[in-house]
Design a protein around this nucleic acid. Sequence first.
DNA 1: TTGTAAGCGTTATCAT
DNA 2: ATGATAACGCTTACAA
Lengths: 332, 332
Amino acid sequence: VTSHDVAKLAGVSQTTVSLVFSGSAAGTRVGPATRARVLDAARTLGYEPNAVARALVQGRSRSVGIAVPTLRDPFFLDVVSGAQRVLRAEGYAVLLAEADESASMTSAIALFRARQIDGLLIDPVGLSAVDPSALQGAPVVLIDDQSDRWPGVRADAERAGRIVAEHLLALGHRRLGFLGPLTEMPSAARCERGFARVLREAGVAPRSAHVRRVPATVEGGKAGMQALLALAERPTAVFCANDLIALGALKSCVRAHVHVPDEMSIVGCGDIESATLVTPELTTVNLRPLEVGARAARLLLELVDGAPPRAMKPLPVELVVRGTTAPPPVCR
Amino acid sequence: VTSHDVAKLAGVSQTTVSLVFSGSAAGTRVGPATRARVLDAARTLGYEPNAVARALVQGRSRSVGIAVPTLRDPFFLDVVSGAQRVLRAEGYAVLLAEADESASMTSAIALFRARQIDGLLIDPVGLSAVDPSALQGAPVVLIDDQSDRWPGVRADAERAGRIVAEHLLALGHRRLGFLGPLTEMPSAARCERGFARVLREAGVAPRSAHVRRVPATVEGGKAGMQALLALAERPTAVFCANDLIALGALKSCVRAHVHVPDEMSIVGCGDIESATLVTPELTTVNLRPLEVGARAARLLLELVDGAPPRAMKPLPVELVVRGTTAPPPVCR
DNA sequence: TTGTAAGCGTTATCAT
DNA sequence: ATGATAACGCTTACAA
């Protein structure tokens, strides 16, 4: 059922039908009586404008793509969830792609482009995997990062690292460890930078054996903590750049009968839902992923509407002290 | 850059360009030399066929919608993930909508329809929230359910319930409880049916005070177990229709210092990743959500290609015995 | 084997 | 205030 059918039934021209459904100001200029007749006809026929045809003629599809490396990481999940919510509320369709490797990301972007997406939400490592020329045209907003080239929305990961360091220092820890992701991840890098800086200033920079790179998963965290526990001189507290890693680290401690937090403090980053599932509950930093997603979506829509890119200030983060941190054994 | 540009550069007609890029058999009929020239021109111009225009003329958008109530439930998450993977591999775009309430689901479907999706993957409760006439045309495949009206792919939830009952019975439990979702959920209902049937046959049907409906979340599980623990005569084992509920139940036991599994056995359903995060690790039933999603996607593509709907047999499920089940106190 | 031309359902320009 | 009509970029008879 097309606008022609509606036009015929309402006894008006197809143009008029289009005008009525054109959402914008143009619709105002159609007479109230005609308008009513059109709406009526549309309702009885069950007419709904064809967005594909509209997209073709307008050159705007009212759809945006979201590409993330994985949805298994609850951080990205919440970002997608938050973005999806505002996008749909604004009438935009969300094309989703989960692409963990470079080739997959490239093909996902090609798929998106062919569909004429109006904009793209993508994480920095995904973006680095695609040829920039493939992006031509559509605005891009980075998820949890930003660069001079692309605007983005991110949590203040550096501050997250700092407040964790301060928290641990205040508890009396002096031998700190760090578990970060194996692969390049800008937000984790910022996290580590903030953490390391505060420690350095306090004169207790972590020794290199206490800093390990592991896959950014629960399994990675398990392995990382295992390695740390095997050391002759263990750290008394470990900061993980990511809650999944932290949860894995916690698991390894539990398995090895290393008491958390009495013998080992653990801090995560993200505050995912599972953080409160485990016992003791994970001390972590709330990175507000839903808000990151929502703001990224709003920024993207601004750009789609022609606004110039603007730098967003990092979202404030908050330390959530729960059960995995306590003073080190020596201080008790 | 359009096919016209390519045609001009290659010195052929736009039709020829179209033929070359038409994927199907029609492309074979273009001469190898011409074909090469076209491909060459396309490459230098960076041409990519416009899927929107193609969709308009063909009446097929090569995109499908996926609508789920939430992505916070790892079951749905994995279904989406599994479906997304096969869909993209087949060149289909995935439109995602997370819609927890009826109005939101209705508008999501409308959005999808306007975009001319070729098919829809949807959960049964989401589907029940939308006017069937809104679906006209596009094939629908149910996620984790199936009816005479709509085909679908589901895990064998009834069998899941049965094997859990058998497991618990074999351990010696006679006072069993059940925590199911508050809202109508076909798979949970099947789960409960299987569970109840085996127990009834064994003459130990759960008493009604031991059967509770709670929100299908961790919080719901916490509340449900709390209520059960407050009872004068507690069950010795509780089966939860959903891992989130089970995880919440476990949490409540830990908090109340009720030892799991010695004082209380808990079994979940789903085998989500967090099941191994907690201590003790959750005994549960693997519902193979990724496989459900992948198969649902494949079935949907069949229907899109005009195949007649066919009933799928439920995916076999598997009990995963971990740390939350043991014989009841009386048997020790 | 290749080209011409008629749409696909809409918006947008220009008349009326 | 409303109606013709020409795009939008592509596919697909049909013609050459």
